[in-house]
Design a binder for these strands. Structure first.
Lengths: 137, 137
DNA sequence: CTGTATCCGTAACGATACTG
DNA sequence: CAGTATCGTTACGGATACAG
């Protein structure tokens, strides 16, 4: 009965592995910041609290659904704080918590690396693509 | 004819915005590391070169397709190097380039933050979920 | 051993309309 | 203003079979 070994082995691995990942802090955070809008939102909130609609304008292109959804996720993780002011038109402000600010700083390191090395990456990309062209021709 | 203003405005914004994002270094890198397997591969390669199948085992659960696809993306960006040894069973090793090692270090900052603050995040999450339960009850 | 090509299911995302 | 609910699409990831 070794005919399904590879597939079943992978499946078994994946089970144990998923459990492991659920407890893996870096994986959890990587998942968070990999959300399409999280990085933008963190940046948008970095220089002070913003209203819901203000955020909608700052990250240009986000739908209400994704804005709310992303904000909720961030709020759940204690990264942003939601403050409701019960005025005539309701007013809601979002702000980074200290925790959220910390994450933002960590992500900033990645951003710094990116800005410092983007040219090298782009150059590598060009080289790779040219090579691919050459080899197919 | 202002009935479609909001939608069309968003669409227009998104066009300009996508162009902007394409040139945004941090966005580009965030997109890279948001690839489900990039983080794991970076970590797997951090302590030295590995063979294709070795990587497959280290990141337990990855399919050949995703392994190759991710490796190719990394190689294209100059983050990993692929070395083929034309032996009887073909042998292929992958290693981090200096560029790739640099990115790994940047991501490590995020990992460090994650490990330092995972408990706070988890606590926040519990609090949020309890609150949600309470409010619906 | 090291991939490549194909098919398929899921889940993320986006657009829209509607509510408090 | 600040969301929520629903629907459609699409792109990502996984399984499988096959090739060099």
């Amino acid at each position: 009965m070794a005919t399904t070994t590879a597939a079943q082995r992978r499946e078994a691995d994946r089970a144990a592995y998923d459990a492991f990942l659920a407890a893996c802090p870096s994986r959890m955070v990587l998942d968070r910041i990999s959300d399409k809008w999280v990085g933008l939102l963190l940046a948008a909130l970095a220089d002070g609290p913003k209203r819901y609609s203000e955020l909608g304008r700052r990250v240009a292109g986000v739908s209400p659904k994704m804005l709310t959804q992303t904000l909720r996720g961030l709020e759940r993780d204690g990264l942003v704080e939601r403050e409701v002011t019960a005025a005539v038109p309701v007013r809601v402000d979002y702000r980074l918590t200290p925790l959220g600010a910390g994450l933002h700083r960590a992500v900033l390191h990645v951003k710094d690396w990116a800005e410092a090395h983007v040219e090298e990456v782009l150059a590598a990309r060009d080289r790779y693509d040219s090579r691919a062209d050459t080899e197919s021709g």
